[in-house]
Amino acid sequence: MFYLTELTDLDELEAEAVHIFREVAATIERPALLFSGGKDSVVMLHLAAKAFWPAPVPFPVMHVDTGQNFAEVIEFRDRTVERFGLRLIVASVQDDIDAGRVVEIGGPLGPRNKLQTVSLLRGIKENRFGAVFGGARRDEEKARAKERVFSFRDEFGQWDPKNQRPELWSLYNGRHRTGENMRVFPLSNWTELDIWSYIRQEEIDLPDLYYAHTRTVVERDGMLLAVNEFIQPQPGEEPFEATVRFRTIGDATCTGCVESQAATREAVVAEVAAARVTERGATRADDRVSEAGMEDRKKEGYF
């Protein structure tokens, strides 16, 4: 017999992610998808919608909101959730601060990334989610490189890197007791370039921040930070106009941007293909703290 079909690397990655979404929906009660409006979570939602067509995505989305977001991203988040007809659950870091469950470090405008873990775990617990989809990729960071696709978390939400379940073939074991949960990473095997190539292939919409635009920035610790309500120039820092784009979008207090002329999907794909610095290394102050920063945060329950 004669076959015309040849699968590209993106076809295979898409098939793998779709398989994972369906597997979770079929076997784990009350899943939810972590959605921030960032590119990885947008791609995840796009894949989830494709997995269940023509039925709607059979689970809600949750945003762990640090309260220190770029306004454009929150608008984008709300628009997207509405377009897919989904229920949005917001786990608010501000609520946890107000209730005294966490204490801010570095004052009111300090980074809240570390605080997110508490709100995330509370969101999971209150909604009794059995599985939460995250957009993390193994190529992002060393500690992630060892994470399973189905990652077991104990009743405290903690990850034990020494005691992970073996994961073989495409047989995923999502069994857990009440109170425990699974973190599921459908994009595990994608790289930043795969994400962008897929965004281009599928013509997926993203917040404008991902494309080159002009804005006022300051340079701090070798990174460019956008001047906004959270980041003000400190003594000695000279704000200036630059054409920039964001490679990741996280907390507005610590996410840097890079100088770029890439204003379209195609241009970004070309830029990423030529990049010589990882996206986290370039733009995330939180990961720079120590070489093992991510691993420590993951053990505590972070994604």
Binding site: D139, K142, A145, P161, K162
Partner: peptide, 22 residues
């Protein structure tokens, strides 16, 4: 290619780690 901290301290890799290149 060495991953987690504990392993790095022992100077050995002890689990499956995934790497990507193109």
């Amino acid at each position: 290619t060495d991953g987690l901290r504990a392993e790095r301290e022992q100077g050995i890799t002890i689990d499956v780690a995934y790497r990507y290149f193109a």
